[in-house]
Design a protein around this nucleic acid. Sequence first.
DNA 1: GGTCTACCTG
DNA 2: CAGGTAGACC
Length: 651
Amino acid sequence: MLSPNCSNHFGTQQNSSIITHSEDQAESLFFLYVLTPVTSLDLVHHDSSMSSRCSRQGTMEPLSPASQASTRVSPSRVTPHEVKVTQDWALDLGNQYQAKRARVENIIRGMASSPPSSHGIFRHEGQTNKTTSLEMLEDRQENQRNQRLLQHHDHLCSSRTNTEDGRRLREELLTMQKLLGQLHSRFIQIFENPVESKLDISEEACSMGVTGKDDSHSTGNNSDLETKTSTEVGIDPHSECNKMPLDRSNLGWLKNKLVEFTNSNPDKDKLLANMLKYEISRAINFSVDSIFKNISHTFFKSPQLPIEDSDKEGTEDEAVVLSSHMPASSSSHFNSMLQLPLHSEGLIGQQPAIQTEALTLVVQKPVSMTGPCSLNLEVKHSLHANQTPLPYNQPAPQQDDHTILHLKNNCPQQDAFQALHLGTPSTGMPTPKEVHLQCDPVQVRSKVCSKPLGSSQAHQPEARSHHLVLDCLGVPDVKMECGSLERTVKRTSYVLNEGLTTQHLKKAKLMFFYTRYPSSNILKTFFPDVQLSRCILSQLIKWFSNFREFYYIQMEKFARQAQVQGVASVRNLTVGRDSELFRALNMHYNKANDFQVPDRFLEVAEITLQEFYIAISLARDSDPSWKKAIYKVICKLDSDVPAEFRSPITT
DNA sequence: GGTCTACCTG
DNA sequence: CAGGTAGACC
């Protein structure tokens, strides 16, 4: 099939390998064409090197009869101007090829003019033709069209015909016509009975040692070209007859037919053999080219393009770029991670760890990015060296707060409060410079709070002196670039209310170890980075109310459990760091277990458990308000919150 | 009436 | 953990 145009054919990368070879052999091809009977008018475009290359490439076509007939250039394309140009081009060839060309042209003319009305044509110098004699044998209709074309050119070229050569060639013409008839009959037979003919042809061709080798040696430049064109497409021209299946559409079949034809006329049709060899190579090139073109097209449209090599910590811009170049399967991942309105067809199942973590942290509410807060991170995991790891093998009972659990898992800011006790920075952690960053926490607008509250305003001077060492929200121990870290924080910092972030929630939980009933003043003092409006304050109070709720539920549960287990004395009810009750509480308020829970909290917890046990033992639980007495006791057991908690999360 | 709390529910 | 409600307290 004809290539649509030169630029497309040569401009596409996927064809480069084949095309390059062909272009490198432009000169050889040129000579081959000169020596080869041709009929196609594509060569009219040989007025320029580029167009000639394009034409030759563009006309590479399978040699199957059907395709030949359907893809041949229409004679109507020829214009007088083109003929003139071709003449000029041909004159540069030199006289050395004149004789040969004339002879070949006459042969072709004779073959093409099976009807006696057809006369010599293509005397025009340089007027070469792409249609081979074999092709003409295959398609009579095409011959007729070519004849019309030849006739059109005849009057232009006839004056150059040598009368003596003409007579000699006419004799050859007769021979060729006979052969033509034989070959045509043979083709018809093959078409009608392909299987039988296949075997026949195969045996004939191979038994005759059908190769282009011997013949090619006699054609000088043609042999080199033939070898090149064959080898460049991975086909051994000397052995393919033994390998390629003989099919009507198969090039091997055509070659065999040509060999058959050539062997029957060894002295006169070497030219045809060379020509066909070249055509075969060209067809192979074209086929390979088409295959690669299809492959390339399929490849770039495939959604399976792997992007594992893509930067997993790429920026959002990078994600956008990826989404535009990659299969949608890849981009979808980034879409979900970055929540960008990108087309999603499924990105890559390969998820960067950052994104995965962020997704697990999403609580059940929609989020938005507002209200930047900065985290001053100075010390991380400072207590790890001194803190005795708490046994944490058993899950806490009634772990119904999944949100909190998630937050604890990924936001080990408790480390900051561990540092409050030891005040020693841990090693191997990011320096303050490295982790000091701006984050845009996600905020959830509270129903109660109608007004947006600016965060990080009420910075108390004294609070600034206390550098809370906050591990910024699930930032892994891996040292990260600030940009990447910031993106992580953006996705992990989940603002629960106006001005309140997950850091505040964690801080409140840690404060609960000291105070179960914080006053409003205490909250204002220890949350200086939050503008404690009424709604914010109520929110904080509500948090502690929820903390107490969970706390008392656990106490009652374990007290009743002890009752069932038949604990003899209240003195036997103790709460140690390895007790199941403490594990449950620690899991709830300090899931990361990186905060040193004060001993006082253990004492208070033990007292609370005993109070519940006593009340239950005395059947006070029958009273609807039987817990109030316990609350009165517990509220008096609050201790002072360490001054380090005064440090604002926002600097 | 406002505030705080416990309790319940989702 | 948030929202709602009811009760107690001032």
